[in-house]
């Protein structure tokens, strides 16, 4: 009765690993000035992106990223079977409104900051299952839209605590196909929602780290692999706090990841120079780091096989105000340049 494309308890092993044919990234000015600035396709020079509101700017970034990735693959929107996209705003309006103008059959996702990996895992399933030829997975986030939804108005004079993270302004899109040139998605380990009782919305790294660790450990158990089998293990947006906790938790379970474990939230900003405290966060954080920096390293052969874990803090301002703790999730995807 066992499903033929599964290994272990929770991991999918694709029979014909889908190929990431193209990726595209659009980021905000601050991300453009960061250490990975030259890995992005497009850096906008104003957080409004020529629009009246930040919400519209975020939507436009997402649209641009999707259009760009389709163009890079030399395809047309009508060639795309499904668009899987999501974002952080209430009712995922960036994705819904972007899909309105793109006209591609659309499945909206919400995985908080893990949305990109959720989308890539699902896209790979759709393709390997034979349900689609071309699938675009995409997501976006915007510092100013997230700030006003989750925290304070942007002009409010408040001090951010040192554990706070900076929402990445940007959008990333990944186009996948059954064949072609490019790195392949070989495995996916879907995350479980884990809540360790952290209630501080300014400390999402601590809230999400156990969920990421849970996924990584299950992935290792299911596949029989260990940290040495990967050139890089990279989490989405645990930031410096969550990264340190995750390293310790993995160490407690006898997985030494001290050499090859990093986090997109740490890579994307220079926290000393850019005043981003514990690091980057948001859907776009793992999306643009993967679609820009990591794809570059996979394509030039620096990395042969990486385990990416998109992390999400599944909180809402309402739940936080009502004193609920923050559940976390982590979706693991193995990307391999064969």
């Amino acid at each position: 009765m066992s499903a033929p494309k599964r290994v272990g308890q929770h991991t999918i092993q694709f029979a014909n690993p889908p190929v990431i044919v193209a990726t595209a990234t659009v980021v905000g000015p601050k991300e453009g000035e960061g250490p990975l600035g030259n890995t992005f396709d497009m850096v906008i020079d104003d957080s409004y992106f020529g629009e009246e509101t930040w919400e519209k700017a975020e939507r436009k970034m997402l649209e641009e990223a999707v259009k760009m990735v389709i163009a890079k693959a030399q395809l047309k929107p009508q060639d795309i079977d499904y668009l899987l996209a999501g974002d952080l705003l209430n009712q995922t309006i960036s994705a819904n409104y972007a899909a309105r103008s793109l006209g591609i059959p659309f499945l909206g996702l919400y995985g908080a900051c893990s949305t990109m990996y959720e989308g890539m895992a699902l896209a790979a399933m759709l393709i390997d299952g034979g349900f689609a030829h071309h699938v675009v997975a995409a997501c976006s986030s915007h510092y100013d839209t997230a700030e006003r939804q989750y925290r304070f108005p942007t002009e409010q004079g408040v001090q951010r605590p040192p554990t706070a993270q900076w929402t990445v302004t940007g959008a990333g899109a990944v186009l996948m196909a059954p064949a072609g040139n490019g790195p392949r998605i070989t495995h996916a380990t879907i995350g479980r929602v884990l809540d360790v009782g952290i209630k501080d919305p300014n400390d999402m790294g601590s809230a999400m780290a156990p969920a990421a660790v849970d996924t990584i450990v299950r992935h290792f158990q299911d596949t029989g692999r260990g940290p040495v089998d990967y050139d890089l293990i990279i989490t989405g947006d645990l930031g410096r706090v969550g990264h340190e906790i995750a390293t310790k938790l993995l160490g407690e379970q006898k997985y030494d990841v001290s050499k090859n474990y990093s986090d997109c939230g740490i890579l994307i900003f220079d926290h000393e120079r850019q005043d981003t405290h514990a690091g980057g966060s948001g859907c776009a954080c793992s999306a643009v780091v993967f679609a820009g920096h990591l794809m570059g390293k996979l394509n030039d052969g620096t990395y042969k096989r990486i385990l990416g874990v998109g992390t999400g803090a599944l909180l809402s301002p309402t739940a936080t105000q009502q004193g609920e703790s923050i559940p976390g999730i982590g979706h693991g995807v193995v990307i391999e340049k064969l």
Partner: peptide, 20 residues
């Protein structure tokens, strides 16, 4: 469920967190 002792975890998180 991979269960964590919430208090023990909070202590771990506190030991890692940068102080204001």
């Amino acid at each position: 469920k991979q269960t964590y002792d919430q208090q023990a975890y909070q202590r771990l998180a506190d030991s890692v967190k940068p102080r204001p």
